[in-house]
């Protein structure tokens, strides 16, 4: 336990010093890659919460990611235009308002999708989540006011009191702080009695039902929490890119998040972050080496799947002498 805590604190220290380290190494752009890794890590960890801990393989999480991003986009758009969203809600660019709004809206959508999708299971669940995400994708593509396929350019990132969010290091630290809180919260939920019930449902739903656990309701709670986490990541990504577009909602984005989870290690706390990091670093490094980088990425993914059981986390714990 204490060893884990020391490792964790050490890692946090390294991450906190990252802006200094990347500067010293003469690679300042690595900092924005790290920012993206943390954001994608949160999205992947949220997906992993239902996929790995809850056994619900969702192929539609890009919907929540995109909705989170678009909430930031909508609010910014209406602030600059000085108009009301749906004739009711004024725009804003305060991060302290936009983030909770994004989390709330994606949670509501997740509740809606979850209520319907959780009537199925297995492969059918994969496809029905995909179906809803595709419908939402087509909806956003046809939103003419908000740029449709071209997306919304968010000219200024959201503001936080006393902080200059245009500064890359500041933005990174804000994201790191949110990620840390997110991670601690996630660990707490996973280790709680709720997490235990979820684990039980994954292993044997019928037995849990026989014990009197309302399976559907627990799974729905988990799905909503997961959607909220993904929406949070989407809102931060829209702030980072200063841009929201249907690209965030495309089914390939759902696939990418899934790849990150599987690559890192399904059903582990830290795996999705590791998977997001490995995937993005590979993509970035390989594409700067050769225009034929997808070939190398494809082969590496194959080797990882065939060579490790349980993704990179399994590899790490094996190298670390089990535990």
């Amino acid at each position: 336990m204490t060893r884990h805590r020391i490792l964790g604190l050490g890692l946090l220290l390294v991450l906190a010093l990252m802006p200094v380290l990347t500067d010293l190494a003469g690679q300042p752009a690595f900092l924005s890659l790290m920012t993206r890794i943390l954001i994608y890590g949160m999205a992947a960890a949220s997906l992993n919460f239902v996929l790995g801990f809850g056994g619900m393989v969702s192929f539609g999480h890009a919907a929540f990611f995109g909705i989170g991003g678009y909430v930031v986009g909508f609010l910014f758009f209406h602030q600059t235009e000085g108009t009301l969203f749906l004739g009711l809600i004024p725009g804003t660019s305060q991060l302290l308002i936009t983030l909770p709004a994004a989390v709330l809206v994606s949670g509501l959508v997740a509740a809606l999708i979850g209520t319907l999708a959780l009537r199925t299971g297995g492969v059918q669940f994969i496809m029905i989540t995909l179906a809803f995400a595709q419908m939402i994708f087509f909806f956003f593509v046809s939103l003419k006011t908000y740029g449709g396929e071209d997306g919304i350019i968010i000219r200024r990132a959201n503001e936080l009191p006393f902080l200059n969010m245009r500064d890359k290091a500041t933005f990174y630290w804000v994201v790191l702080a949110i990620t840390t809180l997110f991670f601690l919260g996630l660990r707490r939920v996973v280790n709680s009695s709720f997490g235990a019930v979820l684990d039980g449902l994954r292993q044997n739903e019928r037995r849990m039902a026989a014990l009197g656990v309302p399976a559907f309701r627990y799974k729905l709670y988990a799905f909503v929490l997961s959607g909220m986490g993904t929406g949070l990541a989407g809102a931060l990504m829209a702030n980072f890119l200063r841009f929201a577009s249907p690209d965030m909602l495309h089914w390939t984005k759902s696939g990418e998040l899934m790849v990150m989870v599987i690559l890192g290690g399904v059903g582990t706390l830290f795996g999705p972050f590791l998977g997001a990091g490995a995937f993005m670093v590979l993509e970035s490094v390989l594409s700067s080496w050769s225009e034929h980088w997808p070939l190398a990425l494809g082969l590496i993914l194959l080797v990882v799947v065939l060579g490790t059981k349980g993704g990179l986390m399994a590899l790490v714990s094996r190298l670390g002498g089990r535990k």
């Binding site: 300042p28 752009a29 993206r36 396929e149 071209d150 997306g151 577009s245 700067s288």
Partner: peptide
């Protein structure tokens, strides 16, 4: 990815002249 590459070009390689984007949505970001 477009944004990431631009960041690297400008802040690591010191490039001041950029070009090449094909699609409007990559340009937007």
């Amino acid at each position: 990815n477009g944004l990431q590459i631009a960041d690297k070009f400008m802040n690591e390689d010191g490039i001041k002249l950029l070009t090449g984007i094909v699609f409007s949505n990559v340009a937007g970001a």
